[in-house]
């Protein structure tokens, strides 16, 4: 961002928004919006509470297991879809339907099926994230330069080496984009799942704070979740930038 030739750091924009937030909060215009300083003050309380530790742990557990499933199955299916035209056309339609469908509606059915526990959250994370990973992997594999594959074959690469060392590596730019989007969707999935289940994890904490009108705590928790999501996606974006160098020269 530049203003009259001066470079303005990104953090400045955040500061401006926090200042506006503080003013609006102090004026007491919206009862849901406490001043930013109060939210800051609520941080230590939220973070140090035992309910938070418990909620964070169960949320993270569901998120990580769900994402691991998504990576394994999404990347596997994506590679199949990208390499075999038959699989691509059979699976493609379904993957696209699920990718664009409002899966939140399925969560109550999952609860009926799997109960109000970890399983439901894991499946929710999986269902939210797996499709975009499969689709982006497919695109990545389809864009692999055919002569790279021919090169591998001509120098005697086995099928396994061809896929693990050439196709997978060459598809990495799109694959990482899929992983980043998948992570964000998985995060949405775990929170939405917990909000609907309403007895577990960070979603339960949101419920608890808003039901008891603990707005500073509510906002503090929201900022923590935002920061976590941002950090996770930026970490993947960092690797994406590293491979972007060769995305154009494959």
């Amino acid at each position: 961002m530049e203003l009259r030739g001066h470079r303005i750091p990104m953090a400045f924009s955040l500061l401006v928004w926090f200042a506006i937030w503080e003013v609006v909060g102090q004026l007491g215009l919206v009862s849901l919006l406490p001043p930013f300083s109060e939210v800051i003050a609520a941080f230590p309380e939220v973070v140090s509470s035992e309910t938070f530790a418990e909620a964070a742990w169960i949320t993270l557990e569901a998120f990580l297991i769900g994402m691991a499933l998504s990576f394994a199955i999404g990347i596997g299916v994506g590679i199949l879809m990208g390499t075999s035209r038959a699989v691509g056309s059979v699976m493609g339609m379904w993957v696209n339907i699920f990718e664009s469908s409002p899966l939140t509606a399925v969560v109550p059915a999952l609860m009926a099926l799997l109960g109000f526990g970890l399983e439901t959250m894991i499946v929710t994370v999986f269902l939210f994230s797996v499709w975009v990973i499969a689709l982006d992997t497919q695109v990545g594999v389809e864009r692999v330069n055919p002569s790279l594959v021919e090169m591998g074959r001509s120098f005697g690469a086995t099928k396994r080496i061809l896929y693990s060392q050439i196709v997978f590596r060459a598809a990495l730019p799109e694959l990482l984009a899929g992983i980043r989007l998948g992570l964000i969707r998985g995060m949405k999935g775990v929170i939405i799942g917990q909000l609907l289940i309403a007895v577990l994890g960070v979603g339960y904490l949101f419920e608890l704070y808003s039901r008891n009108f603990l707005m500073p705590e509510f906002w503090a928790l929201l900022i923590i979740v935002f920061a976590f999501a941002f950090l996770a996606s930026e970490t993947v974006a960092y690797f994406e930038r590293k491979v972007a160098l060769y995305a154009s020269s494959r």
């Binding site: 790279l148 590596r169 491979v243």
Partner: peptide, 8 residues
């Protein structure tokens, strides 16, 4: 023809 080098 297009070199087929591994860019990574």
């Amino acid at each position: 023809q297009d070199f087929a080098l591994m860019p990574w």
